[in-house]
């Protein structure tokens, strides 16, 4: 399941709800991305999505991850709009029968969200605003998931 929302995320509630009553899963791995303050250089982030496109793109990504890592469930909740330092930008949770699949599933989803998902991120600070593009390390992280030609890499 995926959701975009402008409201602050309640990480504990999201994780509890995700795990509640599940008797089929052996492990859940979650990742929470937070907005940094950067010693006062960042007063906030502004996240923009393309409604109706971003959700479908993430749903396809989740399907790919689900098949590749045999996930039993996955949840992505992503903020849009203005985000204050210390608030969560994204929450990802993956459930699987065994821990390795859950770890890899969450890792895969985050690497693709960072540099491929249809979001645009503007940083606000004392000196003004600027758009943030993926760093070279983000693309290197993504390359880790590339498979041989003809494979199912997204």
């Amino acid at each position: 399941m995926i959701r975009l929302q402008t409201e602050d995320l309640d990480i504990g509630a999201l994780l509890n709800q995700f795990c509640l009553g599940r008797t089929d899963i052996g492990g859940v791995v979650s990742f929470t991305g937070l907005a940094r303050h950067e010693d006062g250089q960042v007063t906030g982030l502004e996240l923009e999505a393309y409604p109706g496109f971003t959700e479908i793109w993430i749903e396809e990504l989740v399907l790919t991850a689900g098949q590749r890592f045999s996930l039993l469930d996955a949840l992505i909740v992503h903020r849009t709009g203005l985000i204050a330092p210390s608030q969560a930008i994204v929450f990802v949770a993956c459930a699987a029968r065994h821990r390795r699949q859950a770890f890899e599933g969450a890792d895969f989803l985050m690497d693709h969200l960072k540099s491929q998902a249809p979001f645009w991120k503007k940083q606000h600070g004392p000196g003004g605003t600027h758009w943030i593009e993926p760093r070279s390390i983000d693309y290197q992280d993504l390359d880790r998931w590339k498979v041989s030609p003809g494979g199912a890499n997204k």
Partner: peptide, 10 residues
């Protein structure tokens, strides 16, 4: 028609 510059989420 949507023009989508380099993306960055997460």
């Amino acid at each position: 028609v949507a023009f989508l510059p380099p993306m960055s989420g997460g």
